[in-house]
Design a binder for these strands. Structure first.
Lengths: 159, 159
DNA sequence: TATATAGTTGACTAAATTGGTCGGCTAATA
DNA sequence: TATTAGCCGACCAATTTAGTCAACTATATA
């Protein structure tokens, strides 16, 4: 089991989409600047999210990504799974063949732990996160900073 | 956060010690043969376990390792911590500076998850594991196989 | 229709971590 | 004094992470 920036970035990016729902497609460039995630890395992650049918893409100018279904119907563990980060804590992927075909001494412990984690992360939808006060506050901060940087770019571009 | 063989091996080895408590020092060679863990790797892990005061060592023939305190007073999360596998799921080690000095969008989510995992693993002592039926069954299996292999070695050695 | 935007794909990479191996050392005991 | 067993540090192959880069395709708009 591992939970690294890969899974965290994916959840953060999906939450960014959920927060800006109804504003049309959101470009990866926007997410990249708001959430400080490398654009190229986001591309990799979104390729997997799309393959897992969690987002749909719109090409061309004004394009971007949107959630493929209601934010209440996408749950954190699905996002983490989609980018290949397993939440399984066993060494045998819960198959029970960790010690020469049989279960190892601690197999059931790791099974129980996996269940705990899976249960926790499958009980939290993007809609749940959007509703949280701490998320709303952080989101406002990030959006403001993003708008400022867009302004600066415009000023630089137009002289 | 990651939970790999490193942490699992450490817990398994500590549980092996707990199961054979009262039989004097247990050598890493015994643990290695019973639990199918590389001896040299066990040495690395036990260096850390000893530094963290979870085991004490006895040198010389008949030597080995013993738990440094009662098995009811050693808890799974301590073992995992000792071998440097963090159970923290945040990207900032719970410091809250994950997004340029401030918390990132998903900081609190990972904090909550960390708390879940930590709570779960700190509620399970080695004594709890020893008392479990699935552990006892697996342990009997492994001990029998170990005795057989010891017999074979003796037969080979004596001709 | 040209052009800019934005997604798609694939090849590549530096750095870190994992799961070890190997050799030599030291302490204790029989 | 030989053997056992822990101690220690150097080294290593394989994998994963967190990217970069370049080329391509689809689409909207000027």
């Amino acid at each position: 089991m591992r939970l690294t920036t890969k899974g965290r970035y994916a959840v953060t990016a999906m939450l960014d989409l959920a927060l800006h729902e109804g504003q049309g497609p959101i470009s990866l460039a926007d997410i990249s600047s708001r959430q400080q995630i490398s654009l190229s890395y986001l591309e990799q992650l979104f390729a997997k999210l799309r393959r897992n049918d969690l987002v749909k893409s719109v090409r061309g100018p004004g394009g971007g990504y949107q959630l493929s279904r209601n934010k209440a119907d996408i749950v954190v563990v699905q996002v983490i799974d989609a980018v290949n980060e397993s939440v399984d804590a066993t060494g045998c992927n819960s198959k029970g063949d960790c010690h020469g075909g049989e279960v190892c001494l601690t197999h059931h412990l790791w099974c129980d732990l996996s269940e705990q984690i899976h249960g926790f992360l499958s009980g939290i939808s993007l809609a749940d996160l959007v509703a949280r006060k701490d998320v709303q506050q952080a989101s406002q901060r990030l959006d403001k900073a993003h708008l400022r940087s867009v302004d600066i770019e415009r000023i630089v571009a137009t002289g």
